Simulated assay, not measured.
Amino acid sequence: MTPTPDITAPFIGRLKTLYADMDAAYRKAADHYGFHCRGCEDNCCLTRFFHHTHLEHRYLREGFRRLPDALREEIRERADLARQQTAAAEKEGAPPRIMCPLNGEGWCRLYDYRPMICRLHGIAHEVHPPGRPAFRSPGCAVFSRRAAGRDDFRFDRTPFYRAMALLENELRQAAGITVKLKMTVADMIATFEDRPS
């Protein structure tokens, strides 16, 4: 029996290129501000991010499958715990501040596979939504303190959002995907199978 070709494969190369462009733009802005996350007194891995693209879900799963068996099992357990802790915090009406299950010893175990928002978070930026006024975010609290008094740098996320939306729409059409996605990293890990679906 001929194996079914992975319809995601052509999109992964384009995603990697997009990620490289994001990383380069972020690095340029970070260098301007002298802002680098190592030694940060906060940790963005404690922030509850929702991810909305099937393509990034599949790419993260690809990275997860490359990890050693024991590490995959450890991360699965951490993901289950994070989801339980999040549910408990929500039940109590508290904003969840729970470490991402991929964070190990202060660093992402799937750093090269991390989703878009993990790559872009922290630095002051602007976005130009279609048909709506542009808006600017001041960045995270640590950034605001460290970058105080420095000249402003125009870091526009819009081209990256547009490119990601285009890729995601193309994948959905090619794969016949109609359901929307809204998951944390812990939620995504809970869906991962060790073998391709």
Rank of each mutant, 00 (worst) to 15 (best):
I7T: 14
F11T: 00
I12C: 02
R14Q: 10
R14L: 07
R14V: 04
L15K: 09
L18V: 07
L18P: 03
A20N: 08
D21Y: 01
D21F: 00
D23I: 05
D23C: 03
Y26M: 10
Y26W: 12
Y26R: 08
R27Y: 09
A30Y: 02
A30C: 02
A30H: 01
D31C: 03
D31N: 06
H32C: 08
G34Y: 09
F35G: 01
F35Q: 00
R38I: 06
C40G: 13
C40W: 03
E41R: 12
E41C: 07
D42Y: 05
C44P: 07
C45W: 07
L46Y: 15
L46D: 11
T47I: 13
R48A: 05
F49D: 01
F50G: 02
H51P: 01
H52F: 15
H52S: 12
T53D: 06
H54E: 11
H54K: 05
H54C: 04
L55G: 02
H57M: 13
R58S: 09
Y59D: 03
L60Q: 02
R61Y: 03
E62I: 08
R65S: 12
R66I: 02
R66L: 10
R66Q: 14
R66M: 09
L67R: 09
L67C: 11
P68S: 06
R72C: 08
E74N: 05
E77I: 07
R78D: 04
A79C: 07
Q84E: 15
Q84F: 09
Q85T: 15
A89L: 08
A89Y: 12
A89C: 14
E90Y: 05
K91C: 14
E92P: 06
E92V: 11
G93E: 09
G93K: 06
A94L: 15
